[in-house]
Amino acid sequence: MVRPGANLLGAALVLAALLAGCADVPLEGAPSPSSTPTKPTPTRSPTHGPGPTNSLSTPPPVTPTPPPGPHLAAAAPVTRSFPGRLPSGKPPLFVVVSFDGAGDLALWARWRAVAKRVNARMTFFLSGPYLYPGDHRADYKPPYHRPGASDIGWGDASNVLARTTVLRQAIAEGHEIGTHANGHFCGTTGIGRWTTAQWTAELSAFDQMVRTGPTLAAGKAVAPPFDPATVKGMRTPCLEGNRPAYRQAMVQRGMLYDASAPGYIAWPKKVNGLWNFPLQSVTLAGTTKPTLTMDYNLWFSQTGARVAPVAQAPALKAQVLATYRQALAKSRANGNPPLFLGNHFNSWNNSVYSDALTTFVEETCTQPDVRCVSNMELVSWLAKYGEPSGRNRPT
């Protein structure tokens, strides 16, 4: 049974997700975001009507095949196993940290180092253009937009190859790569009206960017950083999209979970054939404001997504950290359902959200009942043990 007021809260969650859309930081060389970002305005060509699908042209094959060795694509990360019950009789309290975009190289280094310090595994939802050189952008043909359109820019030869290396290293460390789709089109002219066929083509375009982007950037055969078939989850741009439509495309592709929808701190269920791993409704510490466990939404709740004076950063960070701690305590009080925390590769609002998340991860992931895992590690645990009995009601 859903507790009283859940319908109103659900409506508020949807509104919050729409108002506080999560824009990715543009790639190096792309226009910088303003100091008061809003939901990105899609780039739309008036000379192109709606297309039936989006696509990515397949470039001519490049030979020779790279020899065995460090240039081979990385294997899927090793999935750790966890007990069904702790000595307390409760299941482990899984904390799942994930990032959208996954482009900035310095932040890749930061989060890999944080994870290593506390034996955490994280999920990185990669945007396809981060691995595709901009001089080939016209290969991408999204619906309702001109060929090559992207609201987050494109890569260039040097950063595509650098990301290829970093992705291999991160996967070897046990981190998971998901997809954040490609052009990041949000709002009324964005992904909300895409059909299953268009989503199928969007996912195929992502796969092709992963497979061929490094080769195009290098001008010679370079194996992709990972096999796109190992990508089993997605977070949609701005948390938008017709969920039955894109989830059908995901199921047909063999994917296992969706991390896009707003939700509650509760044990996950399958919806439309996929595990639903939500960004969760929490209360901003010290207020009665509902928000989601995503950095942009926290920023929107705190300052309307405006940059506050730097002198306010310590207090804002403390509020975010207290919000995370409250959410963890709420999980513990209700049978340890997973806690899902979303972030971007950013330094928004004087790095308040990245700094608060760093502190929370470092103080939480070593606690005896906590396991900081990737989404796919949680999928594997759920597949083995199932949802703990009687613990799926929203809290």
Rank of each mutant, 00 (worst) to 15 (best):
A113E: 15
A109T: 15
G263T: 08
A115Q: 03
A356T: 00
A73K: 14
V222Q: 08
D135W: 09
A261P: 00
T293V: 11
G49F: 01
A20V: 08
W199F: 14
T41H: 13
S347G: 14
A329M: 09
A12D: 05
N349G: 00
F125C: 10
T215N: 12
A249C: 09
S127F: 11
F94A: 12
A6Y: 12
L321Q: 01
P143W: 06
G213N: 13
I177L: 15
P228L: 06
T63W: 04
G153T: 10
Y353M: 02
C186Y: 13
S204A: 15
Y132Q: 04
V95A: 13
T212I: 03
V352W: 10
F206N: 10
G69F: 00
Y130C: 12
Y264G: 00
V118F: 06
A12H: 05
G183H: 08
Q312G: 03
T366S: 14
A383C: 02
G241M: 02
V166S: 10
F340L: 11
P67V: 11
R168Q: 11
D100F: 00
L316E: 15
T47G: 03
R243Y: 13
R371Q: 14
A285V: 00
R44H: 07
G103D: 12
N334Q: 05
K330Q: 15
G241V: 00
T283F: 07
A109L: 09
V96Q: 02
R371P: 08
A106P: 03
R110G: 06
W267Q: 11
T188D: 15
P70V: 10
A223P: 05
D369Y: 03
K220W: 14
V118W: 02
T200E: 15
N336S: 09
K384C: 00
Y130F: 08
G101F: 05
F206Q: 01
R235C: 09
N276F: 05
S45F: 02
T283S: 11
H145K: 00
G103M: 04
E240D: 10
A30S: 15
G84F: 11
H48I: 15
D258C: 08
A20D: 09
N297H: 14
A162K: 07
H184P: 13
L328M: 13
R3P: 01
F360L: 11
N276W: 07
L8P: 05
E240V: 01
P77S: 10
N7C: 09
A74D: 08
S34D: 13
L274E: 05
H180Y: 03
A172M: 04
R325D: 12
S158K: 12
V114E: 12
V379Y: 06
D104H: 07
L131K: 12
P268T: 02
T123H: 00
V210H: 11
Q208T: 15
A17E: 07
A197K: 11
L274S: 04
I265K: 00
L131W: 04
V352R: 02
F300M: 07
P26Q: 09
C238K: 00
M122P: 05
E28S: 12
S88I: 01
V361L: 15
Y130G: 15
G390D: 04
R168W: 03
P268M: 02
G273A: 08
A102P: 11
L284Q: 01
Q252D: 14
E363H: 01
Y144P: 04
V25P: 02
W267N: 06
S57N: 00
A217D: 07
E240P: 00
